[in-house]
């Protein structure tokens, strides 16, 4: 069974990774590149408003201005990064493939633990639930960010994000699968709790790019995430059913 899950996850991940890269190329990617033109052109004084800087000369200019916002600078300017163009797109495709395989393996594993039928239809339902738990609900606290967005320290945001995914998944599972109203209510409380605690607050709401660009990106990013989860569920459920029939 493990072999069937892994084979299905890799097959689905391949299809999802390619589909996602095509969609990103015409939705989120042009917005990211557009935002980077503002970020790279930004003069030093404004860097305090956006604690995120790519250019080598100004890389550490903001640290004195906003020490709490970015105590650990995440951009090591000496570190390797893919060259713009083909190389950058190739690594994005690879990352999308890994995301597709990962999400498919998680969905198939959880569906197997739950038991019951696994096919394209149940797969897509689990995928949509996964999008709710691992993307839509966390985005209420930390909305998708273009490069050049001011934000709290990255580790605190990652911890809040992953905790919110866990709480949302547990809450959703209790609401959907539990037979008792008390447990359903507990699920609702667990799901709401991370938003009552609150996500790490950005030091400023100013950004280097026009506001409209940020709005477009939030919508585009959520559509891309929804596709990642729904297509992973669809393809992996379909493949799993076919492979376990022939096995």
């Amino acid at each position: 069974m493990f072999k069937t899950i892994i084979l299905s996850a890799f097959g689905a991940g391949l299809a999802v990774g390619i589909a996602l890269s095509v969609v990103q190329a015409v939705t989120t990617e042009p917005l990211i590149l557009h935002a980077e033109t503002f970020e790279n052109a930004e003069p030093a004084p404004a860097a305090a408003a956006a604690p995120h800087e790519h250019s080598t000369t100004e890389a550490h200019a903001h640290e004195a201005a906003a020490p709490e916002a970015a105590p650990a600078h995440q951009h090591d300017e000496d570190a390797w990064s893919p060259a713009d163009g083909f190389e950058r797109s190739a690594y994005t495709l690879l990352a999308n493939l890994l995301m597709g395989v990962g999400v498919s393996a998680v969905l198939l594993g959880l569906m197997s633990i739950r038991g019951g039928k696994i096919d394209a239809r149940t797969g897509v339902l689990w995928g949509v639930a996964g999008f709710f738990a691992a993307s839509l609900l966390p985005s209420l606290g930390l909305s998708p960010e273009l490069p050049g967005t001011a934000a709290a320290e990255v580790t605190s945001r990652q911890v809040w994000w992953l905790s919110t995914v866990a709480a949302s998944a547990i809450g959703l599972a209790l609401i959907v699968f539990s037979g008792s109203w008390l447990l359903k209510a507990a699920g609702l409380v667990i799901g709401v709790l991370p938003h009552v605690i609150g996500a790490p607050v950005p030091p400023t709401l100013e950004a280097s790019y026009p506001a409209g660009l940020g709005g477009e990106f939030v919508a585009a990013s959520l559509v891309v995430s929804a596709l990642l989860w729904a297509l992973s569920g669809l393809f992996s459920g379909w493949l799993y059913q076919r492979l376990s029939r022939t096995a």
Partner: peptide
């Protein structure tokens, strides 16, 4: 750096 655009596209905390 290798996964930068994928992280942003999927709305994951980055930087």
């Amino acid at each position: 750096n290798a996964t930068h655009d994928t992280r942003h596209s999927l709305g994951l905390p980055c930087h």
